[in-house]
Structures are given as structure tokens and as C-alpha cells.
Design a protein around this nucleic acid. Structure first.
Lengths: 172, 172
DNA sequence: CTTCGTGCAAAACCTTTGCATTAAA
DNA sequence: TTTAATGCAAAGGTTTTGCACGAAG
């Protein structure tokens, strides 16, 4: 085994130094698309923090600005589509009539528990699910590119009964 | 084992004689809602055949009619929501910006393979998935009411390479 | 310079709603 | 006769698009 192979085997299955920006650049280059200021602003905003978000939240945040970092609604939607295409984002749900995105870079496959009451999204990793999905797909000659599993119900907090003060009342 | 128990074990887990109309009637009565001609027309159309459909398809089909069986767009949407509420329909996906419904009565839990090319929906039953979902939910103190699993990719037909005539060309 | 991207405003869509009218129960 | 339901048209909301202008390669 060479030193290089040895190194590769030691590393976790994540490409350490390739940032979202790097990946986006690569995507853009292969399509003769350009890396503009606006795209950079949206990218920064997307990967600065927000786990889950809807396009309109970015519109609120970015298209109101008075300074040089303003981006229009149309461009936000266009860039978001590009980022999805580039594999940096994916749609995970639809809440209140809006598509909800999440980061899809360097993330292991995972799915969501969606609380019907507080709308919270709880992530969980389930390799078992992916395995079963592949088995089923194989059986149908279906070539998968990915999946989305949404589990509906009430989160722990929202399903906890109120009135913890007087335990006896819980019997009613 | 009694004769009754024996019979139950033989029967499939479906309530045989309760029709969608019966179930809808029951739902309506408990809410002081009315069973109108329009609701009946939509119900008939929904359960006459169509496995998967979007609301707009029904609009095309029902709101164009010149006879007595015409139903307006608004009513179609309202009835569809009622049927979902009543547990007779459920949304299973979103295609081309439209919510896709399917029958949800007497059906065992199942999920879908969705072909990105031809948009076909292929159903599959996977008890394993439901089991894993419950395990995960339990671990998070999450109380589930259901789930939706969409698997994306290409169906057998759409992923079959074209040009079967000249096998040698396939090597290109 | 040439081509791609941005902003704006308007359009497209699906879905919901207010209101006057009609029809169940 | 009381109250819910329908149809219409319009509104609501998100997402997309045509076009003229501006910027990147």
C-alpha cells in the first residue's frame, strides 16, 4: 500500500477542504456560467448558518437591503435553483405553501420528523432506510438518485400534556 | 379458536362492505356537514378509477361539463380537502407544482418510486420502513401519525438505453 | 465585444376566499 | 326555515419569465 492510499484510508469519507464555494465554482465552470457578486452573496447567506429555510425568507433578508449587498427576488430564486442543481441544496419539505431547502453538502443522507404543531424539523440519520430503498428499487429495475422521507406527527414537546403542576389532574 | 376468530384470521385486513361513500357520510354527519350532489360527483370521479391525480385534472374534467354534472373549481378544491380530512385521500407527492393525491382507503401503507423523466409513480409496500420509522420516532419522543417516502430516480423503462438495434453502437 | 446575469414588473400557477345565491336537512 | 354549500370572480402566495440594461470573461 502506498503512502497516498494509506492516507486515503485514514480519512473520513468527506472531502475536507472543498468548500461549498469550491463546489459551486466547479459546477459553474462546467456549464459556462458565471460567478457573480449576487451569487456569492446568496451562497454566503445560505451557508452562513441557516439549516432549513424557504426562498421567501431570503427575499425578506436580501432584497430589502439598501447597501451594495442587495439581491432581487428574481435572482434569489434563480440562484437557489442553481445551488440545487449544483448539489449544494435540496428541497426537503413543503411548509405553508413554501418549498423548504436544506444544505446538501458534506451531509450524510438523513431524513426528517416534522411536527404538525410547531412545524419543527428534526433530522435523523437512518442508513437502514437507504438500504431498504435500494433493495426495493433494485427489485423494480429503478435507478435511484435519492429519496425523501418525511415523518409526520407531534414532537416530544408538543405532545407533552400541559398542566404539570398537579399530577392528580392528569387522571381526568 | 372460535369460528369467528378463525374467520377473522382468514380474511384480509380490509373492511369489506364499507364503501368510500359510507365513510364519507359518517365523516360528514359527525361534523354537521351536508352530502350534496357536487360532493357525490367528485367522490364518484375520484374513486371511479384514478389512482393518482392532481386537483387541476379534476377541474379540467369536471368544470368544463355542460350538463348537470358540472362542478366548479372552488368546490372541487373544497371537496378534495374534505376527502383528505375524512381520511379517504392523502397527498403523496408534488409534481410540476401540483399536489398529487392518491386513494387512502382500505390501502395498506405504501410508498413511491417517482421517475424523474416520465413522472410515473410506482407504488411499493415496505413494512420494514414503517417499523424503522417507529423506532426512530420513539427514540425522539415523537408521536407519529404517518409518513411519506419518495424515492427519486429513473424507472426501468426510462433508464433503458435506446438504440437496441445495433448492439455494437452501445459501446460508443 | 459577446454572452450571461440582474432587476423590474408582470405573468403563471395553484389554491383559497368573500359574497350573493341556491339547496340540503 | 335555517344554515351549510356552491359558483363566480378576485385575491393570495410562491415561483417563473420577458425584456432592457449592466457586468463578467
Amino acid at each position: 500500500m502506498t503512502v497516498a492510499e494509506d492516507l486515503i484510508n485514514e480519512l473520513p469519507a468527506v472531502e475536507v477542504s472543498v468548500t461549498p464555494l469550491d463546489k459551486f465554482r466547479e459546477y459553474l465552470q462546467t456549464r459556462k456560467k458565471r460567478l457573480t457578486t449576487e451569487k456569492t452573496i446568496v451562497l454566503d447567506e445560505v451557508f452562513s448558518d441557516h439549516e432549513h429555510f424557504a426562498a421567501e425568507e431570503f427575499v425578506d433578508r436580501l432584497s430589502q437591503r439598501k447597501d451594495q449587498r442587495r439581491v432581487s427576488r428574481a435572482t434569489i430564486y434563480r440562484v437557489l435553483n442553481e445551488l440545487e442543481d449544483a448539489g449544494l441544496l435540496r428541497k426537503v419539505a413543503r411548509t405553508d405553501g413554501r418549498d423548504v431547502y436544506e444544505h446538501d453538502y458534506g451531509y450524510p443522507q438523513h431524513d426528517h420528523l416534522i411536527c404538525s404543531k410547531c412545524k419543527r424539523l428534526i433530522e435523523f440519520a437512518a442508513e437502514d432506510i437507504s438500504r431498504i430503498v435500494e433493495e426495493v428499487a433494485d427489485r423494480h429495475g429503478f435507478r435511484t438518485t435519492g429519496h425523501r422521507l418525511e415523518v409526520y406527527g407531534l414532537c416530544a414537546e408538543c405532545s407533552r400534556p400541559p398542566r404539570r403542576r398537579n399530577p392528580k389532574l392528569d387522571l381526568l
